[in-house]
Design a protein around this nucleic acid. Structure first.
Length: 722
DNA sequence: GAGTAGTGTCATGCT
DNA sequence: AGAGCATGACACTAC
């Protein structure tokens, strides 16, 4: 658990990640015990109901809908969003890494145990031959997926790709037991390479479908070292399957988790062009520290191991931009380009790849299917599709879209707004805080017929709300409880609706109601406000305060809670309520003043009260408008982010399509190239010639041909219209 | 005690 | 010109 602590120290984000993933892991413990589908899904992403539930839970609890803007849970919320985004970015990383572990197997027959027991993230670097195999398998997987013909594309003409070593004995060995497998692999030790399919078939034959220990588990340092040290035990025919899958399961989960973390952190790091740098990037702080306890594969130990056993030094990371520049925009590429890092760890000879498959590999890095297909071919056919479908569809659709949308723009305010939208009752009472007959009531009547009927009926009874009715109204409001729970919080403010006096024209009572009644009876306004405050279940403190307040003498309470103008009005013996002073239409107001013989001080005070009351309501509306404006802007941002996410998704789909097309073109061109013969019947050398596609067909062009020369197709060229 | 949110009030400009 | 509205700024209060 030490590594957990270390992750904890890295911040709340990782804490949240841990929490969420712990849940997954717990589920998968039983999942594993039942010998059910492999652990790939854990690494690859939420392909099971567990993760789905997990994300639903995240969304339900942490997406802000149920979080108050001031709630500290928002920290979890935003952290979770980042987590989800990070998980999104993981989608294309897992499979390539898992695929590569197979190469460790075939590369070093002595390390069968390690390769089979370790995970994909353990980077098995190999030389050109391996790469060729990878490409072959990848291409065949592509063809298989695309329904293309099973043309053999062993790339016979490509010397640089290294040897293709399909062995008949290996074909037999794939049906044999693990003992035989070990022996076979041992016997193959002298070989530089063998085809990926053959190797993986052997593995598949040894490890029945669904278990696949070699791909499920992360390679720990100790385990990685074990093969070379404990080769005899392996070669002695010890059953590989059971012990590995059983004993390594708990550790594997940890390792996979750390692999996830490692790759997540990798994505945040700058991609280096060499494998050594990449591994160095992994070590220093996070991964190395986290991997020490559980001996995860991404730390320095693994790189050391790889350097020792698999000669990573010769590996290089080809530049993605070489082959596939225009397809990536900086935004998308920032993550996509980094993903190939792990994949490239296994690519020791990029030039070979590029020369033969062109953008295939690079595009394959962009999207998982081809690499997945490779893994799929040999290990779990279920893996790739669920992976891609879940990550690209489910996660992008259900999580990424929303999360991306919320990533920047989903503020606490919007969270509270959404919360309020779900909780219509609470939103009705905002302005009722001032008094039962306050504008909120009228506004409530605007938004809720039920509540308006009760409140407005109460307050319009008298026209100008009297003290008694206010008290009653306060009681009504308090009794309504759910409708009138006053919470002077942002989210409640957001629910304020504008005063719309025009709605009440012709209805003097309602028009009168449609104003702030703060200047009503002091007791009514403040007391009812506090009553409403007490109705809020979340304001227990206020409730206690209210209980104490209720015990106090009413007059005392009135004096204390009255506004200045109310007190002044009482002191000046103003014969009508502040409610009337403020809310009456100017004509009625003037008539009211005319009815009563008032001195100058009284008139001045009344006019001040009216002015201040009007201004107070105006200020409330102004603030409400501000908030609504902010919310609308945030909604706009959210919409734009959703749109952006959708566009990104479409872009990915287009890129996927382009990649597949490129692969097809590449395979066809290779097939075509292999069939081409010169005048003497000899095949053209791939190092000397290449195929150029033009509008009039395919031209065979010498590589040393300059651009100008290429414009003159008078050289050796053949038009192969296919 | 400081920070913050909510609210009331004033001043000002505009309709 | 007066009334009303909108809004920035400030002060007060409660948390």
């Amino acid at each position: 658990m030490l590594y957990l602590k270390k992750y904890f120290t890295e911040g709340l984000i990782q804490f949240t990640i841990l929490l969420s993933l712990i849940g997954v892991r717990l589920d998968l413990d039983t999942y594993l015990n039942n010998q059910l589908p492999p652990l790939h899904e854990i690494i690859l992403g939420p392909s099971s109901a567990y993760t789905q539930t997990q994300f639903h839970n995240l969304r339900n609890t942490l997406d802000g809908y149920g979080i108050h803007p001031k709630s500290v849970d928002l920290d979890h919320f935003f952290a979770t969003r980042r987590l989800l985004n990070q998980v999104h970015s993981l989608d294309h990383l897992r499979v390539p890494s898992t695929e590569l572990s197979a190469w460790l197997v075939h590369r070093d027959p002595e390390s069968v145990v390690s390769a089979t027991s370790q995970s994909g993230p353990s980077i098995a670097l190999d030389n050109g031959g391996s790469l060729e195999d990878v490409n072959n398998s990848e291409a065949s997987a592509m063809r298989g997926a695309g329904g293309a013909s099973e043309t053999n594309y062993s790339l016979s003409g490509e010397d640089s790709l290294g040897a293709v070593a399909p062995e008949d004995s290996q074909e037999q060995g794939e049906r044999e037991s693990s003992d035989d497998l070990s022996k076979e692999l041992t016997s193959l030790g002298a070989q530089t390479s063998l085809s990926l399919q053959e190797c993986l078939r052997l593995l598949e034959a040894t490890f029945p479908f669904g278990e696949e220990p070699e791909f499920q588990t992360s390679g720990s340092t100790s385990q990685l070292r074990a093969p070379t040290e404990e080769t005899p035990s392996t070669s002695q025919g010890i059953p590989l399957q059971a012990p590995l899958s059983q004993s390594d399961t708990p550790l594997d989960l940890e390792q996979q988790w750390q692999d996830i973390m490692s790759i997540m952190e990798l994505q945040d790091m700058e991609v280096n062009s060499t494998v050594v740098n990449v591994t160095m990037n992994n070590d220093p702080s996070n991964n190395n520290a986290s991997s020490t306890d559980s001996a995860t594969s991404f730390g320095l130990p693994r790189s050391t191991l790889i350097n020792q056993d698999v000669s990573l030094h010769q590996a290089s990371l080809p530049s993605c931009s070489q082959d596939f520049p225009p397809l990536f925009n900086p935004e998308l590429d920032s993550t996509m380009v980094q993903r190939p890092t792990l994949v490239r760890l296994s690519s020791s000879n990029s030039s070979n790849i590029n020369s033969t498959f062109g953008a295939t590999n690079l595009t394959g890095l962009f999207l998982p299917p081809p690499l997945n297909s490779t893994t799929n071919l040999t290990t779990t056919p279920v893996l790739p599709d669920p992976f891609s479908s879940l990550l690209e569809e489910s996660m992008l659709d259900e999580i990424s879209l929303l999360d991306l949308a919320m990533e920047e723009g989903f503020s606490q305010d919007q969270a509270s707004q959404l919360e309020d939208e779900l909780d219509s009752d609470s939103g009705l009472s905002l302005d009722s805080s001032h008094s039962p007959a306050s504008p909120s009531n009228s506004e409530t009547s605007c938004s809720s017929a039920a509540s308006s009927s009760s409140t407005s009926a109460t307050f319009s009874e008298e026209g100008a709300v009297g003290y008694s009715t206010d008290s009653e109204a306060a009681t009504v409001e308090a009794e309504e409880g759910a409708v009138g729970g006053y919470q002077p919080e942002y989210s409640k403010l957001c629910r304020m609706s504008y005063q719309d006096p025009s709605q009440f024209h012709g209805i003097p009572q309602l028009e009168s109601v449609n104003h702030n009644h703060t200047y009503n009876l002091p007791l009514a306004s403040s007391y009812s406000e506090r009553s409403q405050m007490s109705t809020s279940s979340s304001k227990k403190g206020r409730d206690k305060q209210l209980q104490q307040t209720k015990l106090q003498p009413p007059q005392d309470f009135i004096d204390r809670q009255s506004s200045r103008d109310e007190r002044r009005a009482r002191a000046m013996d103003i014969p009508f309520s502040n409610e009337k002073i403020i809310n009456l239409p100017v004509e009625e107001f003037n008539e009211l003043l005319a009815k009563h013989h008032l001195n100058e001080d009284q008139l001045s005070l009344i006019r001040d009260i009216r002015r201040r009351g009007k201004n107070k309501m105006a200020a409330q509306n102004c603030r409400k408008r501000k908030l609504d404006t902010i919310l609308k802007l945030e909604e706009g941002v959210q919409d734009l982010q959703r749109e952006k996410a959708q566009l990104l998704k479409e872009k990915m789909e287009y890129c996927k399509c382009i990649r597949q097309t490129k692969q097809k073109v590449q395979s066809l061109s290779q097939e075509l190239f292999a069939q081409l013969r010169d005048e003497e019947g000899r095949p053209y050398s791939a190092s000397e010639y290449f195929l150029q596609y033009g509008t009039d067909g395919v031209l065979l062009m010498p590589r040393n041909m300059t651009t100008e020369q290429s414009n003159k197709p008078d050289k050796k060229q053949k038009d192969k219209k296919k």
